[in-house]
């Protein structure tokens, strides 16, 4: 039997409520940041207005990493303290992270088609992002195919932590793989004219990320609490 968790206590900690206002505020912030960036950024010397895609693509990538970092932290924390809520938070961050990851990939392809002429190139960033996406998908698949909640939590935490360790290694190896034969394809440094817009969009998208993770976590807590209540009833009350 698993170690006792706070949720096995009949007096359940009520699942948190996520304010819809946070969601609305983050959407408004995002619209504002995007409008500002589109209207005020000058066309790039090489790419013209195509550079404007960067304001959605790059923050999406950053949010993916932040989400993965959250998965790492709470996976390790679960292995350490075995608090079920940590597992639920890690899983929520993984689902949201996978969504932002998929978005990053799509935007990378939409940027790449006019920039390079093809829908896909095996460059360092796109390839690494794709591998990261597969690691996310594996984590979510594992959760889908394991029914026992205790086992699912332990295994997800182990897979999440070990997967996260691999992320920088994947990036490093794919970058080496590319630089041996070709110089990097996308510009590494950013003109100062663009950084403010980028930062504003990143902050706005971060608000969206926080809202999504909190909301998803609330749902996970509600579902788990419902399960517990149903179990208590099934066992004939106390």
């Amino acid at each position: 039997m698993p170690a006792s968790t706070p949720s096995s206590d009949p007096v359940l900690a009520p699942p948190p409520r996520t304010s819809l206002w946070l969601g609305l505020a983050s959407v408004i912030a995002l619209v504002t940041a995007q409008t500002h960036a589109i209207l005020t950024s000058p066309p790039d010397a090489d790419m013209g207005h195509l550079q404007k895609i960067m304001y959605v693509h790059v923050p999406a990538a950053w949010m993916t990493f932040i989400a993965f970092f959250v998965v790492l932290v709470f996976s390790v924390r679960y292995l350490w303290q075995r608090r079920e809520n940590d597992d639920l938070l890690a899983a929520s961050a993984a689902e949201v992270g996978a969504t932002f990851n998929g978005l990053t990939l799509m935007l990378g392809m939409i940027w790449g088609r006019p920039a390079w002429g093809v829908w896909w190139v095996w460059d360092a960033r796109l390839t690494s992002t794709l591998v990261l996406f597969l690691i996310f998908v594996g984590y979510l698949a594992l959760r889908a195919f394991v029914d026992d909640t205790d086992q699912r939590a332990r295994w997800s935490a182990a897979v999440g932590a070990i997967g996260a360790i691999n992320v920088p290694i994947v990036y490093m190896s794919v970058t080496w793989w590319r630089t041996l034969h070709q110089p990097p394809s996308s510009p590494a440094t950013l003109d100062a004219a663009y950084t403010l817009g980028l930062r504003l969009n990143a902050i706005a998208l971060l608000l969206v990320l926080i809202y999504f993770i909190r909301k998803r976590y609330e749902i996970a807590r509600l579902e788990r609490a419902t399960e517990h209540a149903a179990e208590a009833v099934a066992m004939g009350g106390r």
Binding site: K52, L103, K215
Partner: peptide, 24 residues
């Protein structure tokens, strides 16, 4: 492509938001 990029961004965000609100 620029329009497509922003459209895809909003479709994904709003679709996921809708999913969360309904599930919630």
């Amino acid at each position: 492509f620029i329009i497509a990029a922003y459209a895809v961004t909003w479709v994904v965000i709003l679709a996921y938001l809708l999913r969360l609100v309904r599930k919630g």
